[in-house]
Design a protein around this nucleic acid. Structure first.
Length: 115
DNA sequence: TGGGTGACCATAG
DNA sequence: ACTATGGCCACCC
């Protein structure tokens, strides 16, 4: 594992994309996987997000939710409501662990990054 | 070798 | 709105 850097390269690619998500916008795991070529499934994006908190260069992990706009990763933050708090600080409303007007805030890397 | 488990997703009913 | 299923792929027994 320590000799095989393929995972870490993938992680870095995920982190780079997430860092491009503008404040007040959000995307989901699948969209990132698709943008990166889908060689790896969206599960791997979630796996990468697990490691995102220990990065020197910060990763706005709170801007990544699941396909339905639900804050499925919230328990992996320092506190169970930190993810929601960070989103609300950017003007995004959250109700019952779900983003209000998800489509309105959605950021599609395939489109926004103009392939 | 094989089963269980994920910050997932699409589809079907 | 909900559950069930199959695909996904790395990790851990």
């Amino acid at each position: 594992m320590t000799n095989d850097h393929s995972h870490e390269d993938f992680f870095q690619n995920v982190f780079d994309v997430v860092r491009l998500i503008p404040k007040g916008r959000v995307t989901n795991y699948g969209a990132i996987a698709k943008y990166l070529g889908s060689a790896r499934s969206s599960r791997m994006v979630g796996w990468a997000m697990n490691a995102s908190h220990s990065q020197k260069k910060k990763v706005p992990a709170h801007r990544v939710v699941n396909r339905n706009g639900e804050l499925t990763g919230r328990l992996h933050f320092a506190t169970p409501f930190l993810m929601q708090e960070l989103l609300e600080k950017e003007g995004i409303k959250v109700k019952n662990d779900k983003i209000v007007d998800f489509e309105k805030h959605f950021w599609e890397p395939m489109k926004e990054l103009e392939m």
